[in-house]
């Protein structure tokens, strides 16, 4: 399983809205928050590799109930014959760390939350690397998640059931469509035997691109 031994601090500071070097006190707080977070999370992921087929209604993951709808995912998976369905989570321990930190110090709570977000990205990167290492001679697309472009968030339920995320990972979906534990990511990676044209990643397919505070400042969130 994945071991994460440190948080990508520059990324965490950026999530916090810090655009300068943190001062000494902030760095001291970061040491405490990072230690607590790493001691409480259990980063894990599960995945399923399944054949896919483009249909009129969307991209169908064969042998499952999962149908990925919308034009953006169809374009993303163009030329792919299989896909990795990924679910990765830091576990409920991340929430516990955020609550514990925030109970006595709002700043520590916010910092721990930002660190957990950064750590979730690190987990996904490591998971993707590990998965693809087991699939030689395939060409992957980048990770595409529900909520990107016109792939609706409502697909989460079927996606989680397909990989049995509740039983195997402890990940659930609230009635309002939130993944719980909240530091959880689901994604689809297309696989092709031929090199794939990697679509544009980032702002272009992001729903926030009109109102994004990072773009307003001329920077990126990730």
């Amino acid at each position: 399983m994945i071991r994460l031994t440190e948080v990508d601090l520059p990324q965490a500071y950026r999530y916090m809205g810090m655009h300068t070097e943190p001062d000494e006190r902030m760095q001291q707080l970061a040491v405490i928050c990072e230690k607590r977070l790493l001691s409480l999370v259990s980063p894990r992921y599960i995945h399923l590799v399944c054949p896919i087929r483009q249909t009129e209604g969307g991209v169908l993951c064969e042998g499952t109930t999962l149908l990925l709808t919308g034009q953006d995912i169809a374009a993303h998976l163009e030329g792919c014959d299989r896909a990795v369905i990924l679910c990765a989570t830091l576990s409920a321990g991340a929430e516990a760390a955020i609550r514990q930190a925030g109970a006595s110090d709002v700043l520590a709570g916010m910092m721990t939350d930002a660190m957990a977000s950064a750590l979730t990205e690190q987990l996904c990167d490591a998971a993707e690397q590990e998965i693809l290492a087991g699939l030689p001679e395939t060409h992957p697309t980048w990770r595409f998640s529900p909520g990107y472009g016109d792939l609706p968030l409502t697909v989460q339920g079927d996606l989680l059931r397909t990989v049995n995320a509740e039983k195997r990972l402890g990940v659930t979906l609230s009635e309002s469509g939130m993944l719980i534990p909240s530091k959880t990511v689901t994604a689809v990676i297309g696989l092709s035997s031929q090199p794939v044209q990697k679509g544009k990643r980032g702002c272009a397919v992001c729903n926030m691109n009109k109102s994004c505070p990072y773009r307003a400042k001329g920077v990126h969130c990730a």
């Binding site: 409920a92 929430e95 516990a96 609550r99 509740e166 039983k167 659930t172 609230s174 009635e175 719980i180 534990p181």
Partner: peptide, 13 residues
Amino acid sequence: IGPIGQMLEPTGI
């Protein structure tokens, strides 16, 4: 009987 599928407070709602 298995888990309800929704997390209890405080992690869930």
